[in-house]
Amino acid sequence: MFCHTIDAPFLAPSFQEIANRYRDNPDARIMLEHKLRVGGRAHWGNMAMPSPAERGGPLSPEDAHTLIEWVLRH
């Protein structure tokens, strides 16, 4: 929650921006869940998603799924 906010870009896109970009893409959930779990290259600007070690530890597949479902509803 340090990098994202609900409705305004901060260090990363807002949850609303992510939802707007990916909501109607059926393949996005899998990609976003994977990126949330392992980090990855930048899709928005120059800042990559930090690795789990840089964010406090690993995230289970179930928790990643729950978080992405929540984000895509915004």
Rank of each mutant, 00 (worst) to 15 (best):
Glu17Ile: 10
Asp24Val: 04
Pro58Thr: 14
Phe15Asn: 02
Asp7Lys: 11
Pro26Val: 06
Glu62Ile: 11
Phe2Glu: 09
Arg37His: 10
Met49Tyr: 14
Gln16Trp: 01
Arg23Lys: 15
Ser60Glu: 12
Asp63Asn: 15
Ala12Met: 12
His4Arg: 06
Gly45Met: 08
Ile68His: 01
Trp70Met: 06
Arg55Glu: 10
Leu72Thr: 10
Ser14Val: 04
Met47Val: 15
Thr5Ser: 10
Thr5Phe: 00
Arg29Val: 11
Asp24Arg: 08
Asp63Gly: 05
Ala48Arg: 11
Arg37Met: 15
Ile18Trp: 01
Glu62Gln: 14
Pro13Ser: 02
Pro52His: 11
Arg55Tyr: 07
Pro13Leu: 03
Met1Cys: 06
Thr66Met: 08
Glu33Met: 12
Leu59Gln: 00
Leu36Lys: 05
Met47Glu: 09
Leu11His: 04
Asp7Gln: 07
Ala42Gln: 14
Asn46Met: 09
His65Val: 00
Asp27Val: 06
Arg21Ser: 01
Asp7Ile: 02
Gly57Asp: 09
Glu62Cys: 02
Leu67Gly: 04
Ala8Asn: 06
Phe2Asn: 10
Arg21Asp: 02
Ile68Asn: 01
Ser14Gln: 05
Ala12Ser: 07
Arg21Ile: 03
Ala48Gly: 09
Leu67His: 11
Leu72Gln: 07
Leu72Trp: 08
